[in-house]
Design a protein around this nucleic acid. Structure first.
Lengths: 193, 193
DNA sequence: CTACGTCTACCTTCTGGTAGGTAGATCGTC
DNA sequence: GACGATCTACCTACCAGAAGGTAGACGTAG
């Protein structure tokens, strides 16, 4: 049994911490406590906080791209694909394992973020929007969706609603709120014209 | 000419600061610099940071309720009313005067917020959702809107999309992104069945 | 005289970050 | 196989500055 490297333990605990309070909501001391090493040892793995978070978001993006890519390969029907994507977040929020997209969270703090981190966040938004656009285009081509605008705009609207639903679930402290909003988002798309 | 009270100067500078970086993104020192007084003097007006922010959000809520109420009285057509609401934010974002709803921003940091502040944020979400619901119900009653779900769910979806659009505009650094998303949100509602 | 608003001066704790050192694994070289 | 040299991952100890907050003095307006 191979134990997880300290490097990865730092990243994963930072991820958990950042999900709950954003960039300025956690410190090296917090991570040190969780991982069980000293503050200074974190600097051995990540020289600065900005670099730690940049690296964390880069890893998150890679995971997301892999996940979205896998979904594209595994689920042929665009409607089911979008349902699978939304379902993923419904589960994350319901079991509170990771109840917020770190990029959505960091986006709200954009003006206060180190530039390197901001760039990663921006890139994630572009990736996700492009993936959604592809699904919408395919669905429209198959006569499966009725789009009222170009696919790119619809994709931005879809993404915004998902992120806003995360915000509402958090504000109300009610996971079901996310489901209500996203279910009707999906229904609207797949309803016959 | 009556000069603005220090009390209000503190609140308004705190509002500007919080819009850009959230609860942990500003300090008493930051406010002191902007207002031109010493840190300690702020404590004379607001004993703790939590109380300052709670009071700030409470004031924001009051303003919002007044503004929404006035809109309800002044604009009879529910579609125009929603358009006016969205237009307000389009202008705020375009001129960068206050490019984010502080309650939406604080909602993302909910788990890290003092309880008193969290309660105010939650209350704002409820107020706004209720106002939107009324507009949607009126529009549906007049046959002006086609709703695919109950008005309450549609209102939550509407609010989520607005908040998500703010997030996207920030992530991309592109105010026009907010307009694209919200315009199609309004169009969809008012389009004939 | 009093109440208020502001000040200086200070406190404690936390912040991200640095300096320098140590135990153990891995290395090339004889 | 034995040798030192280097590398890795961690440590203790420290730093300067910022955080939120307190105590008490001072001046001014009513």
């Amino acid at each position: 049994m191979t134990s997880i490297s300290t490097h990865d333990l730092i990243l994963s605990s930072a991820r958990t911490l950042i999900v709950s309070g954003g960039y300025n909501g956690f410190s090296y001391a917090d991570i040190a406590t969780v991982v069980g090493i000293r503050k200074a040892s974190i600097h051995h793995h990540f020289p600065t906080k900005a670099e730690l978070v940049r690296s964390l978001v880069a890893g998150y993006r890679k995971e997301a791209e892999a996940g979205l890519g896998a979904l594209e390969g595994a689920v042929a029907d665009p409607a089911d694909r979008l349902r699978a994507y939304v379902g993923y977040w419904q589960r994350c929020i319901a079991d509170a394992s990771a109840p917020f997209c770190i990029c959505a969270l960091l986006a709200s703090e954009m003006p206060a973020l180190p530039e390197e981190v901001g760039a990663e966040v921006r890139a994630h938004f572009r990736t996700l929007a492009a993936w959604l656009r592809t699904a919408l285009e395919q669905g429209a081509g198959q006569g499966r969706f009725r789009l009222e605008r170009d696919a790119a705009s619809e994709a931005e609207g879809f993404m915004a609603t998902i992120h806003g639903a995360m915000l509402s679930a958090r504000a109300y402290g009610d996971a079901a709120c996310f489901d209500t909003i996203t279910d009707s988002l999906l229904d609207r798309l797949t309803a016959r014209p």
